[in-house]
Nucleic acid binder design. Sequence first.
DNA 1: CTGAAAGCGCTTACAG
DNA 2: CTGAAAGCGCTTACAG
Lengths: 308, 308
Amino acid sequence: MKVMVMIIMNKNQAGVSRATEQRVQRAIKSLGFRPNHSAGVLRTGMTSTIGLLVQDIAEPFQSELAGAIEEVAADRGFLVIIVSSHSDPNREKESALALCSRRVDGLVLVPTVGSQAYLKPEMDSGTPIVAVDRPAQDLAADTVLSDNSQGMKLAVDHLVSQGHTMIGYLGDRPDLYTSVERLAGYKSGLLDCGIPVRPDLIFGQSPAEEALTQSLEALVSAGATAVITGNTWTTFSALLLIRRLARPLKHVAFDDFKLSSLLDPPLTVIAQDPRSMGRAAAETLMSRIKGDLGPRQKIILETRLIAR
Amino acid sequence: MKVMVMIIMNKNQAGVSRATEQRVQRAIKSLGFRPNHSAGVLRTGMTSTIGLLVQDIAEPFQSELAGAIEEVAADRGFLVIIVSSHSDPNREKESALALCSRRVDGLVLVPTVGSQAYLKPEMDSGTPIVAVDRPAQDLAADTVLSDNSQGMKLAVDHLVSQGHTMIGYLGDRPDLYTSVERLAGYKSGLLDCGIPVRPDLIFGQSPAEEALTQSLEALVSAGATAVITGNTWTTFSALLLIRRLARPLKHVAFDDFKLSSLLDPPLTVIAQDPRSMGRAAAETLMSRIKGDLGPRQKIILETRLIAR
DNA sequence: CTGAAAGCGCTTACAG
DNA sequence: CTGAAAGCGCTTACAG
């Protein structure tokens, strides 16, 4: 039976009569026969599957990234195994190696803070790897990033053009790549405008509510008239806190989000484009899978300011 | 080499000296050897992989669902292949069969409007399938649903208790399962309160902006003092439109979303719990994979009203 | 208990 | 051109 099926499926030309072919096709359908993909994998080495290792698939930025990657993959006949590292380097490593054991044809990952050196053997043996949102550490992977620093400069310029000079910054944990870049953009944005950088206006921490409350109060009493929040969670918490302030504080947020346009007072944001990032990452990966051996690529996508 | 590795990895007891074992372990590491999962699949028939077929992984509700499913799967050592059907029955079918060809140990799907009868052979041959958010058509799959109708009754009760009797309803396409359930809840909620159902206050359509504008105007001129929006996209569009109305319109929305608490005026919502739905679906699937042959299950999760 | 050999289901190189 | 046979890399049933 299975041999016949294979014959029919592979060469739909002569040799077998039309009637027989139809009979077999019907048998395939009624018996629910599906070729065993794993057997083909064993023979050909190709899985038509890629791995995607994100921080957390439940978060909007990451899921939009994943949606774009899946779309490109689907267009090319690939499926995507998605795993969340929850920002834990050990889980990242375990999951990445599980994906490699499944012989994915390529891997897109949002690296955690740890080193990705453990993936070197995989790359050397021909599995292409693309890092997205942050660069990989100790691994010569292709990379797709947002221009975090340029975005933060836009935010600073925008506020300065509105007359602000005391601009606070509420960033994320300072050990994250994006934090470093955004803080650098903030500082150079100020310096470019001839405004001194004041350390008492800069805070970098995980977006926990209590710490944030303190930081915001410190900003205000240091005389800040505006604040930039450096990531979505901080933005959400800050939105609540800012409303309760006696004096209004102009707020610009890094990262757009659904409904940002509906807030009152309106919120100006720096928007990354997760769909474009995902598409770029997936397309880079796909061309590597097809055999592109060109030099390592670093794709940096501009961010834009949406003034409100 | 590989044989030795297998020997070491499978039985880490006697027979091989500690020194040799360490040498081999080091060799594994330096050569980057990873057992080929597909070969094992071919032999054992188990992939330790499940399939997840959602409408669109980029949408918040679906990605939270996916996050919970992935978490349960990861706990049990399973990976998840995620595919988006984009509400297209043909893509659903193609993707589902691609997953079956990869011999996933089980499948969770958010069914599209089409029939899922094509999956019967898979179920019969032992692949468990769980439908989530909507029931599968023509397929005896386990099912995990929100109690849409109960949620809509909560919304109606809430508005009636505030004195509203002219309550409009802006639903989604009427052919969706959730639309049918929510509309039924709206109607029976009104009837339970002794309020007649007025067809001129009921609209069901895809959440396209222009159509919605007309519907909302029609509601208002029919005398509605409150409106319930039946899905997130309609809610977002309606939020903008309602602000522009001359007379205030009390608004209750089906489905919670990030930042709903920050809106002005505040928005009362009926909240589903996608994480719990995902967890229930994944746990049901996992127990089926483990061999649970009990009767078909239908799990219905309550929704709750968050008054603001 | 140990170790060689069979076999999972495909694909493809090869003999006829 | 056709068709039987080898082989991908594991796991496990089986012989020694």
